[in-house]
């Protein structure tokens, strides 16, 4: 299967590979995986608690070229976005940007899941997580 030029570019020159200290309260960590292919993706965001803006993002993915490219692209998109804007990133935008073929769509889903997991982890640390079940109980 042929990869698009953008996938190859991210694969050969992945952006923002690395990690932050996951105990840092301003860091949110998302670790997700795909059982079918054994891929694992770790994505971290560093958020300014005063502005709620993502100041930096890093990732490390073990998987195919599309999974690496999806998470690399995600970290590029995350920097400078607010938490709310970050949660709006859809896997379909990643598919479009990278020209992913149908068999590789799950890689973009994984990246979207990783973004959400990282942000939820940050919110949990900050105690600002929306807990629908509690809100329901208090209503």
């Amino acid at each position: 299967m042929a990869y698009s030029d953008k996938v190859i570019d991210h694969y050969n020159n992945p952006r923002n590979v690395g990690s932050f200290d996951k105990k840092d309260p301003s860091v949110g960590t998302g670790l997700v995986g795909a059982p079918e292919c054994g891929d694992v993706m770790k994505l971290q965001v560093k958020i300014n608690p005063d502005t709620n803006v993502i100041e930096d993002a890093k990732f490390k993915t073990f998987g195919c070229g599309s999974a690496i490219a999806s998470s690399s692209l995600a970290t590029e998109w995350l920097k400078g976005r607010s938490v709310d804007q970050a949660l709006e990133i859809k896997n379909t935008e990643i598919v479009k940007e990278l020209n992913l073929p149908p068999v590789k769509i799950h890689c973009s889903v994984l990246a979207e899941d990783a973004i959400k997991a990282a942000i939820h982890d940050y919110q949990k640390k900050q105690g600002t997580e929306n807990k629908p079940e509690e809100a329901m109980a208090n209503a």
Partner: peptide, 23 residues
């Protein structure tokens, strides 16, 4: 559907760690 499942966090941590060692 296989893709719908979420692996336990400690298993994912372990998979990630071992992948680091393989690397």
């Amino acid at each position: 559907k296989e893709a719908e499942k979420r692996a336990p966090a400690d298993l994912l941590e372990e998979v990630f760690e071992l992948n680091m060692q393989i690397e």
